[in-house]
Every structure is written in structure tokens, then in C-alpha cells.
Amino acid sequence: MLLIQQIINGVMLGSVYVTMAVAFTLTIGVLNFLNFTIPTLFMLAGMGAWALTAKGVPIIGAPLIPVVIAPIIAIVTTIAASLIVERFTFRYLKMKYGDSTEHAIPLVSSLGFLLIIENLVRIAYGTDPQRFTALEADFTFDIAGLMIRVPQLASLMISIGIVFAVNRALNHSRIGRGLRAVAENPDAANLLGVEANKLVPVIFMLTGLLCGLAGILFAMNYGEVSPQMGEDIGSKAIAGMVIGGLGSIWGAVIGGLIIGVAEMLTIHLFGADTVQVVVWGLLLVMLFFRPQGLLGHNSIGKGKL
């Protein structure tokens, strides 16, 4: 029974990873770009929502924002930050394929943004973790002795709902068709009249939205935010994405859930110290034997990189 409970907890934890892994996989699948700002955007949303309710807006000294509106403002801020990142990491960087370290240019640039955003938050609000209980809702119900927390269930539902919506948009909308064309072959898409420059910001807006939601849901579930909260969650989301397969949305969902369950089971069976070895060992084994991941295609991340 305890084991089943741990698996349920793992799935709930995995839902946070899923949302971020989908953000990672979208940028990799369409733009071939490992966006390292995603963990910071996640942190920005969580810290932002907390800061708005507890400290008000810095510099202009606006009053405290009510708890109902703060998450929305935080998510909008996250989307804006993501668009700023797009402007400076992707839009003006010349992408000439051939030189094998050149694909790293946006990646390195996004590492720069990771440092900037995270440290700006540190300067504004300090490095300590903050209790953020305003959003925390604690309803629990049990089915046959299994405890299920309502906020966690809600966040799982929301995560899966977002994934369905994104997937549907990619497959059935005009923008989605354009994005898939760019993912397939940027040059050919350009020749056929797809305006890649107008589509790329859409990916970054989606990234901001997904990270923002993940950050708020995390704050709701765990009641604590800190400037470092993105590092651990973000790197596990990357692991989940790779296990599921780069560029595959359902792969990211499965990979994120696998990482969540693996983490909970490891803690249950071997203790918290071994989580790092199990999660990253899983990733390494996957990369050695099936680099394309569970659901990935061979082509992504190979031909162009």
C-alpha cells in the first residue's frame, strides 16, 4: 500500500516536471535550441507571485497585490521575460550550420540569461527560501487508504490539459503547421512563405506560459519558493525530456512522469541521497543505448547539430 502511495506521489511530483519538460522539448523540437532559461523562468513565476503578495513591487513601491491576481501578473511577467530572452538569444544570432560549436551560441547566450535573471531576483529578494502559504490549499481525500491531495491532483489535471491544448494547436492550427514546417526544415519553410521570424516568438510565449504555470503550481503544492528552486526541478525536467525523446511532446509527458516516480521510489527504497545517481544514471544509460529516447525520432538533434 505504501508503495502504491509512493507511486501516486511520484506521478504528482512528475506533473511539475512534465510541464517544464514540454517547454524544453518545444524549443528543442522546433528551434534545435536547448533553452537554459527555462528553470529561471519557472523560478521567476514562483518568486514573482510570492513577492507581489508579500513585498509589493520593487523600485516603484506599488502596494501589495491580492493573492487572486498575483499569479496572473507573475505569469505575464514570465512571458515578457521569455520574449526578452528570445530577442537576445535567438533573433539576432546568425545560425550558420557547419561549424559544430556554432549551434551552441544560443545555448551559451541562454546560460548568460540564467545568470542575469537569477541574480537579479537574488538582489531584489535575498537568497533565502520563503514560505509562501497564501496560495497553499490543503484538501486531502483518501480512496481505500490512499491519500490524494487535491491541489496536486488539480496541477496534474492542468498539466495534462495544457499538453493536450499545445498538441492540438500544433497539429491543427495554422501557426502549428508553420511551426512544424520550421522544425522539419527552416530553409524550405522559409522558401515556401512561412515567416519563421514571426513564429519563433510564439514558441517563446508558450515557453513562458508553461514555465509560469509550472512555477505557480509548484508554489501551490509545496508552499515554498526560493531563487534556487528552478535548478533542481529544471535539471530533472531535462532528464525527463531526454528519456522521453527530444522534440516529442508525449515523450516529455512520459519522461517527466518516469522521473517523478523513479525519484519517489528511490527515496522510498534507498533514501534521499541516491536520487541524483538514479535519475542521472537512468539518463546516461538511455543516452548510451537509445539516444533518441523512448518516443523520439532519430533525426532531431542529429542532422542539424
Partner: peptide
């Protein structure tokens, strides 16, 4: 592995080494 995969694989390797030493 190449490109992004190699970046991820080396990153994972460092985490495994750190985790192994920690334990």
C-alpha cells in the same frame, strides 16, 4: 552522441560522479 545530446550526456555524467562520491 553529438551536439545537444553530448552536452546533456556530459552534464548527466558529472551529476552521476557527484552523486556516487556523495554516497
Amino acid at each position: 552522441t553529438k551536439g545537444v545530446y553530448l552536452v546533456l550526456a556530459t552534464f548527466a555524467l558529472a551529476e552521476v560522479i557527484a552523486g556516487a562520491i556523495l554516497n
